[in-house]
Structures are given as C-alpha cells and as structure tokens.
Nucleic acid binder design. Structure first.
Lengths: 344, 344
DNA sequence: TTGTATGCGTTATCAG
DNA sequence: CTGATAACGCATACAA
C-alpha cells in the first residue's frame, strides 16, 4: 500500500493538516517544520492520492485532445505539442480519437464527464450543433485547434488559411504557371474548404488569370484516395493544366500518383503543390512543395491557451481568451517547375 | 452538481447500498426494486463518481498503451485496435508516448502509479532492466505487443518475424533475384533486428545463395532517413544488386529515394521490398511490395489478453497468460520485378 | 433481500 | 502558525 498523508504526519510528528499545507501552500508553514515534513515525504515516497483529491475538489488534472484521426500524422504531430505543454503543467492528456463518429464521440464524452476532465482541445473538425451541445455538457473550457468557432465565441489557434492559400497559388503563378487547377476540400468546411478555396480564387484574380468552376474539384475527404479521384476529374476538365494545387498533402500525393499512372512526370509535365508539410511530403519523389503549418506549435499554443482558461476559471475570473493566428511558410521541394526558366 | 448515489436512493425510496448493488451486483436485488432504482437512475442521469470508486477500491478503469512514437502510423494503427477493445470493456486508454525517452517515461510512470492504472500494453521496444523495474513499480499486468519478454515471463502478441523475413526473402528469390541486399534494424534489437536478419540469412542459405556481411547494412534507426543512408552504404558494397529487402517500410522508402536519386528505376533496375505494410507503402510510386502485419489485430489481441490478466488478478487467480503469434502476409505491389519473366 | 455504518485520503474550515 | 474535524461519494461488512 502506498503511504498516506497520515503516515507522513505520524512519522514527522505533525498533524495531517500540516502535511497537506506543505504540499498546497508551503509558505504558510514554519520553515523548520516544513523541512522536517519534506524529509519524511521524501523518505516515504509519499504522493497525494489523486482519487482523494479529485473526490474532494472535483478536478482530475486531465485534459482531453479531441481529434479526427490519430493515424493521420498531422494530428499525431499536434498531439506532441499538446502533450509537451501538459506535461510541464503536471497534467495528463487523454486522447479522444475518431471524433467524426458520433456514437463513439458520445461514449467518450460520457466518460469524460464522469472523469471530470479539466479542459478540451478540439481539432480540425467543423463545429456543429452536436459538438457544441457536448462541450456544454462537459462544462469545461474548450480551445479549438485548426478550426473555427467564432460563432460560439470559442478561442482558436490556427493559421490564416485564406492567406496561406493565396500565397501558395501566388507561388505557382510566380513560377510561370497560368493553367492552375485546385483540388479543394469539402465546400461546406469553413477552413480547409472555403477559406483555402477563396484564397486560391483571389490569387488567380489578383493576377488576372481566368478562374472558374472548371478549375476546381471539391472532395468530401482530403485523403490520398480522394486526391487521386479528384485529380482524375480535374484532368478530364483541364487536360492542358500545368500545375495543380491541393488543399492537403495527402491529396497532392494522391494526385501525383494519378499523374504518374497517366505517364505524366512531376514536375516536368505537371507541377504539384500541397498543403500541410507532412513528414510524408519529403518522402515522395520528387519532394512535395507545400505550405507548412507549424503543427507542433499549434498544439503547444492551444494547450497554453487552455491552461490559461482553466486557471481563469479556478480563480473565478471570466476573461474571454483571444484567438491566435500562427505563421505559415512555403516549403520548396522538387514538385514545382519554374516555367520562366529554360523552357524545355 | 451531478446527482450522487444518495440522490438516487432518496428519490427511489431505498438505501444507498441498494443503489450500489443495482450497479455492481444487479442479481442480488429484488426485481421490482431494481426496476424502480434503474428508472430513477435514468431520470437523474446518475453515474457513479469514479473518484469515489477509485478511492474506495484502488482501481481506475484505465489502461495505458506505452509506445515509442505516436507519429509513426504503425503505432497509431495499433492504438486503434487497443482502443476498440478497451472501449467495449468500459475502460479508458491513456497513451504514454516516446517511451524511449527515459526521463519522460519515468515521469509518466509516476503519474500512472498515482492514478492506479489497471494494466499496461507495452509496444515494440526492447525490454531492458530499466523498463522491467518500472513495470514492477506499477504492480499491474503487462502485455507486450510486437516485442518479446520471454526472459521475464511476460506475455506477448507478435508475428513470427523470423518466418516473415524468411518468406519475404524467398519471395524475392522466387522472382529470380540472387544478388539481394538487406537493410537491417539494430543488430541488438531481438525482433526487428536479429530475428529478421536471421530469417533473411536462412532464406538465402536455403536457396544456396551466397550471403555475407557484404549483403547487409545494420542501422540504429529504422526510419526513412536511416533507410536512405543505409541504402547508400549497401550500394557502395553491392553495386550489382538486383533487389533490396528492408526491415521496415520507412527504410524501404528511404532506399527507394536514394535509388531514384542515383537515376536507378524501381523496379526496372532494382527491386525493393519492405516490412510492415504501412498506409504509406501504397502511396509511393511504384507501390511497395511488403510484409503485412495485422497491426490493428495485434492491438486488439494484446488488449484482450490484458483484460484477461486483469480479471484473473481481480479474482485472485494466478494463471500465466499464453503469448500469441499473429499471421503475416506478403502484399504484392509494383516494387518487385519478376526477373524470370521477359528479361528486358 | 435490504439497510446501517464505516473507511478510503484529501483539503478546507474553524478554533486554538 | 498549527491541529482537530467534517465532507467529498462510494462499496462493503455486518446486522436485521
């Protein structure tokens, strides 16, 4: 059996309240006594029993990361960032995977309510009434990562997808491309869908290039397979295209696969640009030129924001948190050809 | 505030012990009463407070999955399997990532001891005295996944890496390859290192093919970059090779990248074979021929074994668990050329 | 079969 | 500054 606060108290010849204070409010204890207690704590390897603390003050020192797909490296990376910050705050991170699956999500939320988790980071998924309702049931602070919740006043951490998409498209244009196709995410998704789409369109227009429904294929998914299929459709509409920009790396790589199967070389015949800068994007040949998000840092920042909110709530302050915009960056690899240089 | 067992008791006009029994031992309670209580439970949305239960009987209903790298799709997949089984047993899974990092690992173990987690699944990492000591400190059942602990009598779930490697090599040989190089994992690692290496050597010998130190490069890591570097070394030793077999898909893809940069085409000039069947391996061009482990199923099986052990322990039985061997399978994609067919 | 009473380990309140 | 004690919610030994 682990030593309890009573064991410590007995051995140090003090009351249990003193031991408790040494833990929770050390300055309020006379130095000599404090040292004596600390020594015994050390000797016995005492640590407060979290069940007892939890029972007392209804806090678990656990936060939850809610993500769509742990097998997707994007979220794995984000988790690393979250974990790092949580660890240094002496919190534990629980993962709620596959949040698109409502039944599963509900089951988890129930567990979390019971566990009295102290906060939630919710990633990359469009906030519907369903999710909002469940956030409410949890009655804890929520921070969004790579998604948007202005409508409900939820703080978020994400890049400016519109601007990033604008920059990516501009990069292609600056490399001499004019017939550029876009493989978009779902039309309804505000971030990975609409914002990136609008950034693309705006950049084309800003450079007086034609852009129409012909230039775009929307997909429900943003996966490798979806990219492959979307590229097939796009190619049918735009056989003359010289560049494709995809709203995710996975899609871009799917598109590359399709082009490859058509006997088209990247970047000789068609240039390809992605979005995300997954680990994966440097493993393909040629390396994928893409827009980098600082994913780990998004995770870290979201966690920091969350702890701020948790603290605010503990001190019964009621400051709303600011949302944060992260930087983005274009990573140049080999998949985009500069048509302004030596035309072959 | 959430309803407590007392609220239910009052509203149903029974004692709290009856309510408790309805939860923990329903048959021991008179049907009529049970129904009355259940109805109130429903109405109030009552659920036992896990802190209180935990405090009482020192169990958390949490298991831990200890893995080296959550960003590696292999473990992400395994986690899915573990989670599924845990969920259906009304357990929660906590993830302990980056277990190679001893400091971090220790921090986690401390947390887990305090949390009184009920069991551990430990994946893919060589069991050193350090880990074993910490398992002991946790004093809960441990099941190994994709690693080996016969020495300490720990049950494990994994494929027969020796046989799988033998089969992979044989596949290359049957496709007419003779000058085959092997990119191995760490020489010290019993599974991904030694067993796969020995399987390779045995297959070569079984087919009367020459095999020596010249045919093999060992790497500390089994990553993309390690594969790239190892391939460079191997190619320097064996410029005439017609096939490479790598101990992991990531290495195989790194090797493909190197070959590509040398102007060598896969599989025209060199055939490549991997191990793991990551999602990734079908995204590269050509698709990687590889050895598939049923990773999700390994996770599931490990979790099932663990719950069996937890149950045994609760009932104070002391049956040792059997280890389990999983099937493997060769997945044929485009990266291996059959030299027995039309020689170009 | 049901109810009563106790203790799990902690923290906070209050009295000294 | 320190100590005694109540309360958190539950499960069980024991009594009825």
């Amino acid at each position: 059996m682990n030593p309890s606060i009573r064991d410590v108290a007995k051995k140090a010849n003090v009351s249990i309240s003193t031991v408790s204070r040494v833990f929770n409010n050390p300055e309020s204890v006379n130095q000599e006594m404090r040292e004596r207690v600390l020594k015994v704590i050390e000797e016995l390897g005492y640590a407060p029993n979290p069940f007892a603390s939890g029972l007392r003050d209804n806090r678990s020192k656990v936060i939850v990361a809610m993500i769509p797909d742990i097998e997707n490296p994007y979220f794995a990376e984000m988790l690393s960032g979250i974990e790092e910050v949580a660890l240094s705050n002496r919190y534990t991170v629980m993962i709620c995977n596959d949040i698109q699956n409502e039944e599963r999500f509900l089951h988890y939320v129930k567990t979390f309510v019971k566990m009295k988790v102290d906060g939630v980071i919710f990633a990359s998924t469009v906030i519907t009434e369903f999710y909002r309702k469940n956030f409410e049931a949890l009655r804890v602070p929520v921070v969004l990562a790579s998604t948007e919740g202005r409508e409900w006043n939820l703080p978020s951490v994400r890049v400016d997808d519109y601007q990033a998409s604008f920059d990516a498209t501009t990069f292609l244009i600056q490399n001499g491309h004019e017939a550029i196709g876009f493989l978009s995410g779902p039309e309804q998704a505000p971030i990975a869908g609409r914002e990136r789409y609008e950034g693309f369109v705006a950049a084309m227009k800003a450079h007086d290039l034609p852009v129409s429904a012909q230039h775009v294929v929307f997909s429900e998914e943003m996966s490798f397979d979806a990219g492959f299929a979307a590229m097939a459709k796009l190619y049918a509409k735009m056989p003359h295209l010289t560049a494709v920009y995809a709203a995710s790396d996975a899609m871009a790589i799917g598109a590359m696969q399709f082009l490859h199967q058509q006997g088209l070389e990247v970047p000789r015949h068609v240039s390809v640009m992605g979005f995300d800068n997954l680990e994966l994007s440097r493993m393909v040949s040629p390396g994928l030129t893409t827009v980098a998000q600082q994913i780990t840092k998004i995770g870290k920042t979201a966690a920091e924001l969350l702890f701020q909110a948790i603290e605010n709530r503990e001190e019964e302050r009621d400051e709303a948190l600011e949302s944060v915009r992260m930087e983005h960056e274009i990573i140049v690899r080999g998949s985009v050809r500069n048509r302004r240089l030596l035309e072959e």
